[in-house]
């Protein structure tokens, strides 16, 4: 088929389409869905019994705030990157990564401080927090990749990384709200590390999916 024939075919096929919502609007819808998943996860695993006092702990508050910010900024950046010509500024995509870095640094600092006084905790206790991240994060991750694929991700790898990071942050948020274990080693290994690992693994798989859907 030559280009003129292709144009004729495309013109004949053309039908009105509904314009994609703005990235922030899509991010708001996704976040609402992710918060429902978090609420469902907390209801399923049970809310931490010390929630009344946990709210007063700066460490817990900082982690919840950082995870919520990472989730929001990641998904907004992912949807912005899925609109051609929409976002060229590097800082928009680095912000969520920087927040995850801060979260990791804070948790690592707490771990080192606790280790120094022999109160880091056991690495073997309650590894099932990984299940919380996976249980709650899977659906938002799939939805984010599907929504990203409805656009046109000029940079599939970055877009997939940010989409999966947002979902991982939602999963870790569930762990913070459902798990009462304070031990820094537990928090670092089973709340924060799964976000990093799932982002890395999801980015590989997500990139392949996004790239494949771009070729369709």
């Amino acid at each position: 088929m030559n280009t003129d024939q292709l144009i004729d075919r495309l013109v004949a096929d053309v039908t009105p389409v509904r314009r994609l919502l703005k990235p922030t609007e899509r991010a708001a819808l996704w976040t609402a869905m992710a918060l429902v998943a978090v609420a469902f996860g907390v209801a399923w695993f049970g809310i931490r019994h010390d929630i009344a006092t946990a709210w007063l702990e700066p460490g817990v508050l900082a982690r919840i705030a950082l995870l919520a910010s990472t989730m929001w900024l990641s998904i907004v950046a992912a949807f912005r990157l899925s609109v051609p010509g929409g976002e060229t500024r590097a800082f928009a995509r680095w912000w969520p990564i920087a927040l995850l870095g801060v979260l990791t640094a804070i948790s690592a600092a707490e771990l080192v401080a606790a280790w120094a006084v022999g109160a880091a905790g056991s690495p073997l206790r309650s590894w099932t927090c990984v299940r919380k991240v996976a249980f709650v994060g899977t659906v938002p991750a799939i939805v984010s990749i599907v929504l990203i694929s409805r656009g046109f991700a000029v940079e599939p790898r970055w877009t997939a990384i940010l989409g999966v990071l947002a979902a991982g942050a939602a999963g870790a948020l569930t762990s913070e709200l459902a798990c009462p274990i304070h031990a820094p080693l537990h928090v670092f290994l089973w709340h924060i590390t799964p976000v990093i690992v799932s982002t890395a693994v999801g980015a590989l798989v997500g990139t392949l999916i996004v790239e494949r859907m771009l070729r369709l």
Binding site: D13, V14, R18, R19, K22, P84, G151
Partner: peptide
């Protein structure tokens, strides 16, 4: 043609097309 739903008429056309 396939991703025309991502075009926002409030924004310039050229960056979208060239991307």
């Amino acid at each position: 043609h396939r991703v025309r739903s991502t075009y926002d008429p409030a924004r310039p056309f050229a960056p979208w097309f060239y991307a």
